[in-house]
Amino acid sequence: MHSHLHTPYNANCEEIMTALDECHARGFFHKAIGSCNDIKRDVNKCLAAERYARAKLNRDAAKENRKKIERIWADERAFAEGLSPSPSSSSSSTTASETSAAAGK
């Protein structure tokens, strides 16, 4: 048994879920003989696809956040060791090699 199905997360499955509700509304005997089973399988497939899409978005966002945190940690380690922070995290658009090359000219 599913929890409440008609939520914003499952908006793409609304049509299939409504068809299942209509099938169940026909009565107990109709449900008992398995007339709604195909629709139920379609609902399950749709909900699984929606859940997979949400999980993928969450994973991608978590990976990006992790990259940001690791850059911050690397900069803090570099600062603690007396080194300059990594060029990718500095606000300047020039790298150390570009600066030294420009100074040598």
Rank of each mutant, 00 (worst) to 15 (best):
S3Y: 09
A53C: 03
A62Y: 09
K40T: 06
A53E: 10
E76N: 02
E50G: 02
K56S: 06
S89D: 01
H2E: 12
A78V: 01
R26D: 07
K45E: 05
A55H: 08
E98W: 07
P8N: 10
S91N: 11
E70A: 03
A61H: 08
K105R: 09
I16R: 02
R77L: 02
K63S: 09
T7V: 12
N10T: 06
E98K: 14
H4R: 09
K67E: 13
F79N: 06
D75S: 03
H24R: 15
D21W: 05
N58H: 06
K63C: 00
P8H: 11
Y52R: 07
D60L: 14
L20T: 00
E22G: 01
I16S: 03
S97A: 15
M17A: 10
L83G: 02
S90N: 04
S97V: 15
N58M: 14
F29E: 05
I39F: 02
N58D: 09
N12Y: 04
A74T: 08
A55N: 04
A101N: 11
A74R: 00
N37F: 08
K68P: 07
A102K: 14
A103E: 15
K31Q: 08
A55I: 02
A101H: 14
A62K: 10
F29L: 14
K31R: 15
H24N: 12
K56F: 04
L57G: 08
G104Y: 14
G82I: 13
A48F: 03
D60Y: 01
A11R: 09
S100N: 13
F28H: 05
K63L: 10
A32C: 10
R51A: 07
A48W: 01
I16H: 03
T95A: 03
D21I: 02
S35P: 02
G82T: 07
A25K: 03
A96S: 11
L20K: 11
S35M: 14
E81A: 09
G82L: 13
I72R: 03
K45N: 09
P85L: 06
S35V: 00
K67Q: 06
M17L: 11
E81D: 11
A74V: 00
N58Y: 10
T95G: 09
A53F: 02
I16T: 04
N58R: 15
Y9E: 10
V43N: 02
E14G: 04
S35C: 09
T18P: 01
K56Y: 04
S90T: 07
H30L: 06
T7G: 06
T99P: 02
A103H: 15
L47V: 00
N12A: 09
S91Q: 13
S88C: 04
F79C: 04
S91P: 02
E15V: 13
E98C: 06
T99E: 15
R66I: 07
D38W: 03
S97K: 15
G104V: 10
Y9H: 08
T18D: 09
E50D: 01
C36N: 12
S35N: 12
A61F: 10
L57C: 03
G27K: 09
T7W: 10
T94R: 07
K68R: 14
A80H: 08
E70S: 04
A102E: 15
N37C: 07
I69V: 08
S91W: 10
G82E: 08
L57K: 13
R71P: 04
F28W: 12
S91Y: 07
G104L: 15
H30R: 05
C46H: 04
L5A: 06
P85G: 02
W73C: 00
